[in-house]
Design a protein around this nucleic acid. Sequence first.
RNA 1: GGCGGCGUACCCAAGUGGCUAAGGGAGAGGUCUGCAAAACCUCCAUUCUCCGGUUCGAAUCCGGACGCCGCCUCCA
Length: 475
Amino acid sequence: MKPFYIYNTLSRSVEELKPLNPPVVTLYSCGPTVYLPQHLGNLRTYISWDFLRRTLELNGYQVRHVINVTDVGHMTSDEDEGEDKIEKTARAEGKSPLEVASFYLAMFQRDLAALNQEQPMVWCRATDHIGDMIVLIERIVAAGMAYVTKSGVYFDVEKYRGARRIGKLSRQSLDEQHAGQRLEHSPDKKSPHDFALWVLNQPHHLMQWDSPWGRGYPGWHIECSAMSMKYLGETLDIHTGGMDHIPIHHENEIAQSESATGRPFARYFVHSAFLVGKSGSKISKSAGKFPLLADVTAAGLDPLAFRLFCFGAKYRSELALADEGLRAAQSNLDYLREFARNLPAEAAAATRDSEFAEEYRERFLEALNNDLNTPQALAIALELVAEAYRRNDRTIWNTLMFFDRVLGIGLEKTRAAGQAAAFPPDIQALIDERAEARKGRNFKRADELRAILEARGYEVKDGKGGAATYLRRDA
RNA sequence: GGCGGCGUACCCAAGUGGCUAAGGGAGAGGUCUGCAAAACCUCCAUUCUCCGGUUCGAAUCCGGACGCCGCCUCCA
């Protein structure tokens, strides 16, 4: 097995991955809050984790991937008070919080499917794991790292600071954080840094559960600790999330998890950079208007063009969303598909590729194993195809299939669709008429028919001696 | 106030001490073609925001300036 290197926020350096129990790798991805559609920035993050997972699988690892969904607990204002964002949407749309969450979760999952994301082993929702969270909070309380007040159960950051280190990830000392400077915090908290494990006495909150401390609901961070440990064990290999989770969410997850178990929580923390707008500013839900996958398809682009667009930049670099960039990705997609469609049967059936392809295969894997350098990997894939055209030797299909295990653009499907070219009768009639016209050198009519076919979503390509191919665009 | 990141051609984007600064898109020219498309070939940054420094050698390291952005409240 070749070494796989990944940037670990814990050490701030690229490290070789050494899973706890190889060949299994446990991977937990911090999921989104489902009260609005997930924008392209959110989707980029999950596609990055899909690249990570597929690369690990390409290396022979068995990945146990869990993605959670936050369907309770986010405040609009203070960390402990105020209205839950899901509840806010629920009130606005006249639905129950669970209906809102289910609706946007389904939309999120549809988007990921359209982007050819592999299904995680487990999708877990916070509201299905309240019991697990309560058990974990009890362990933290028993460890003496939390205290109970009338407004909730809080994690005692000061006490934890004495025992271990906080600021492992953000490299910020507590004094530097100025927590509570911009917002009021609960007077019950011993320190503004303390965060809620369980919130009590918020009668207006719609989602409430019974607990040993009274009726209430869980704090935000506890769900990830509880669910990741439940499905992946007390120490997981890789924990992923957006950059924005480094200073608060993941810091707190580590603190509460390690307080409960006394063991390291995650061996590798991997964080992704943002998709940004044209001014370089972050695309975020709270900013009001934000681009969706539906906008990409409405612009006539394939969802997989967005996937390739993301593949074209490193997960740790900000990526600027630009129309020209998306169109470039669509061109790459068309280029690869075109090759797959027109692949001669004998080239597809070959069990061994031509020798020159071998070097590309190695370079591709090497690029990915170097902290997921997807843009380099993409360049290598495109170069291989160009090289095949140049040599007029297309026996590279096995290598392309190898690439597609991470690229995830479904080239096999494209090729199969190219083989089975059965057209609807009306389309076939137009094709036949066009063949006749060309045969009779009636090019004016032939061009008209080409325009009609193209308008119906077919691609028309003429070859020598009256040959022509017709393809559905979306195949 | 603190912490962090970024600035590579018209656009997106690799490269982080040493072969000619990846790759794609756009653009220009060409081959092929009834035309168009696709594909292929050629061209397209003596230079990496700017100014100093270290070094035999820097886009890459150090210092400074300018510009853009993120986080410290929920956010991928």
